[in-house]
C-alpha cells in the first residue's frame, strides 16, 4: 500500500472521521507497527500487545471527529493511549499474582518465547522485562520508538529531566543484570 507522504496525520484523521477507509489504511501503515511494537516490548506478550494496539486505534476511530489538528502529534497520542493500556494490564497481572498467593517479587512479564529466537536477545529481553514498570516504559520509548526525547517525555507525562532519570536507572539496572548473566551471554552456561 502506498503512503502519500504529502498528506499529514491531521488531514488523514479528518478523513477518517468521514468514513474514508483509505485514510484508515494509511494511518495503520504509518503507526500500527510502532504502536504494536511498543506494546509487545512492554508487555512481552503477543496477544496482549495486539489487544493494546487494537484499543488504541479503535479509540482513534471513535474520536476522530474531535481531533484538533496541530495540538499534538498523532504518534504521541497513540503511544500515550497504548502506554495507559499497558499499565492497566501490568497492574492486573500484579493483582492476579498477589491473589494467587504466588510470588509478588516476580510479577513482571517475561518476553514471549515466540518473540525471541536468539539466546543473547532472550537474555536481554528478560533483563528488560525485569525492569520496574516505568523504567521499562521509558527505555522502550527512548530506545526503540524513535519518538525523540520531547515526545517520549510527553508520552510518559513527565519532564525531560524526569525521563532522563528513569532512563539512567533503567540502563544501570540492565547493565547490572546483564553483568550477573555474563556467563550465559558468553555461552558458558
Amino acid at each position: 500500500m502506498g503512503d502519500r507522504g504529502d498528506e499529514d496525520d491531521d488531514a488523514l484523521v479528518a478523513r477518517v472521521a468521514h468514513g474514508d477507509a483509505a485514510a484508515c489504511r494509511l494511518l495503520l501503515a504509518r503507526h500500527l507497527g510502532p504502536v504494536h511494537g511498543f506494546a509487545t516490548r512492554v508487555l512481552g506478550d503477543a496477544m496482549e500487545a495486539e489487544d493494546v494496539a487494537q484499543e488504541a486505534f479503535v479509540a482513534l476511530w471513535r474520536r476522530a471527529a474531535g481531533w484538533r489538528a496541530g495540538e499534538a502529534r498523532l504518534s504521541t497520542w497513540l503511544h500515550r493511549v497504548a502506554k495507559n493500556a499497558c499499565i492497566d494490564r501490568l497492574r492486573r497481572h500484579r493483582e492476579s499474582a498477589l491473589e494467587a498467593a504466588g510470588d509478588p517479587a516476580d510479577a513482571a512479564p517475561g518476553p514471549d518465547a515466540a518473540l525471541v529466537r536468539d539466546d543473547t536477545a532472550r537474555i536481554v529481553g528478560q533483563a528488560i522485562a525485569a525492569l520496574p514498570e516505568r523504567q521499562r516504559l521509558a527505555l522502550v520509548l527512548a530506545h526503540y520508538q524513535e519518538l525523540g526525547n520531547i515526545e517520549a517525555a510527553a508520552v510518559m507525562e513527565v519532564s525531560i529531566e524526569a525521563l532522563e532519570s528513569l532512563l539512567a536507572r533503567a540502563r544501570r539496572g540492565l547493565r547490572a543484570e546483564l553483568a550477573n548473566r555474563r556467563a550465559e551471554l558468553l555461552g558458558e552456561r
Binding site: L32, G33, H36, G37, T40, R41, A46, E50, A53, P111, A114, L115, V116, D118, T120, A121, V124, G125, I128, L139, H143, Y144, L174, L178
Partner: peptide
C-alpha cells in the same frame, strides 16, 4: 545488545 531484541510485525 538492546538493538538485538527484535519483535514481530503486527
Amino acid at each position: 545488545l538492546l538493538d538485538g531484541v527484535a519483535v514481530p510485525a503486527a
